[in-house]
């Protein structure tokens, strides 16, 4: 299956015939059953799908957190399959930004220190101008000295976003970044991710099952049973919901039919 890529942008990351199998023989579970996907630079992509569709596994494999059983992943033109743990670590540090659903920050460090952590680990000097831009964009300038426990959930996620962007990564992976937030805080985080794509030209990939969150994106890729089954560009919330409902119905029909 070929997915037509956006003609305007080169891919920031790409997956080719990606497979991830747990177990062996009859009990083998194919979390990814051959995914080929280009994630274009400078765009905000959502990956959606019902539970167990393989969306988290896809993200983990593409973000160098997990190794696929077969297939290739390229991030910023580098083939991850050839890298050892040390190089993967360096790649994550320098080319990839992360925003997780929860527990994004190191509790012993202040907000500012958390934002700078990947840069410090890499031993790189931060680009102060870029940093100021990011910090102002997340609107946390007056909170920089606070520890994570002194910040609200939304503020914590915004700090996590700022950290993800601080090193100007090739691509930012966000795993349900609004999953633990109320709708107002969630909207703030999503607006910021949107802005980072629009204003700063960043590449963001977000795994979500929330149609509202996905509606902030340029493109939504739908996964089911470890395969890319659908995608829409410049989606509307209702459109997404329809797709989701159809996928879930299909999944339900298959599981009862089987």
């Amino acid at each position: 299956m070929t997915i037509p890529s956006h003609p305007a942008a080169a891919p920031a990351a790409r997956a080719y015939d990606l497979r991830k199998t747990y177990g062996a023989g009859d009990s083998a579970v194919h979390a990814l059953a051959g995914v080929t996907l280009d994630l274009e630079a400078g765009r905000f992509t959502a990956i959606m799908g019902p539970s167990g569709s393989g969306k988290s596994t896809l993200m983990h494999c593409m973000a160098a957190l997990d190794t696929p059983s077969s297939g290739t992943v390229e991030v910023g033109g580098t083939d991850l399959g050839r890298l050892k743990d040390k190089d993967l670590t360096a790649l994550r540090r320098e080319q990839i930004g992360f925003v997780f659903q929860a527990f994004n920050l190191i509790p012993t460090l202040s907000a500012a220190e958390n934002i700078l952590l990947p840069l410090n680990l890499a031993g790189r000097k931060p680009d102060q101008q870029w940093l100021d831009t990011v910090i102002d964009a997340v609107g946390l300038r007056d909170r920089l000295g606070h520890r994570p426990t002194e910040l609200s959930g939304g503020q914590q996620q915004r700090v996590a976003c700022a950290r993800a962007l601080a090193s100007k990564p090739s691509i930012v992976f966000a795993d349900e970044p609004t999953g633990n937030l109320d709708s107002t805080s969630g909207a703030e985080v999503l607006s910021f991710l949107r802005r980072s794509v629009d204003d700063f030209g960043q590449t963001v990939v977000m795994v979500t099952h929330d149609a509202v969150a996905a509606s902030y994106c340029d493109r939504v890729v739908f996964l089911a049973d470890g395969l890319v089954v659908d995608e829409i560009h410049d989606p509307q919330r209702e459109q997404i919901l329809e797709h989701m409902t159809r996928l879930q119905d299909l999944a339900a029909a298959r599981s009862t039919g089987a």
């Binding site: 040390k86 670590t89 994550r92 997780f100 680990l121």
Partner: peptide
């Protein structure tokens, strides 16, 4: 454990 996982994810090497 989670904190260590996070540190590893955002780029802390095993040695460090």
């Amino acid at each position: 454990t989670r904190e260590i996982g996070l540190l590893r994810a955002i780029g802390m090497s095993r040695t460090r």
